[in-house]
Amino acid sequence: MHDPSKKMPGETAFAVVLVGLSGFLLWQAILISGFEALSSPGAFPMAAAFAMLVTSVAILIKTLRLRERMALRFFTDVAPPVILAMFAMMLGYALLLKPLGFLPTSLLFLTVSIFALRRRGLLWSFGVSLASLALVYVIFRLVFTVLMPSGVVPEGEILAWLGNLFSGGDTQ
C-alpha cells in the first residue's frame, strides 16, 4: 500500500525517529572502544551505525521533499484500533507469561482474541483455543521438552503423576 511518490501519515516522524536511532547507536558504537585500532570490537559497529546515519538522513531529506500526501489517516490506516489492541494483547501475554504460567495465559489470549475478532460464540472460541493449545503443548512441551513457565499450574507434578498412572504402579 506504500507509494514512494506520496507521503504516508507518520512517514516523516518515522524517518526522524530512524535518524535519531542511528545517531544514538553511532554514539554508543563509538563508546565501545573508540578509534583505537582497525580490529577493535567497536570498529564494525561504528561502520554499520555510520551507514545507518547517512542513509537515514538521506531518506529523511527525500521524505521532506515529498509534496503530495496520501489520503490516509494514521489512526485508521496505519495503526487502526484493531492492530493496537492486538499488539497490546501480545504485550499483556508476554507480561503474564511468567507469573501466570504458559497454559492459562495462552488459553486466555487465544479465547479473547479469537472471540473479539470472530464475534461468534464465546464457547466456540474457547473450544477452538483449547484444541489448538493442546496441540501446541504436546509438540513443544512433551515432544521437544521446551520448559515453558509453569506459573500457577503445577505442571511438573501433574506430568509426573500422569506418568505414574501410565506406568501402572510398576516399580523399578
Binding site: M86, M90, L97, F109, S113, L117, R118, S132, V146, M148
Partner: peptide
C-alpha cells in the same frame, strides 16, 4: 480471525523456545 491469533501464539512460543 482464528489463524492470526494462532500465528501470534506460535510466534511467542517459538521465540521463547
Amino acid at each position: 480471525a482464528v489463524l492470526i491469533p494462532l500465528i501470534l501464539l506460535l510466534s511467542i512460543v517459538g521465540a521463547y523456545a
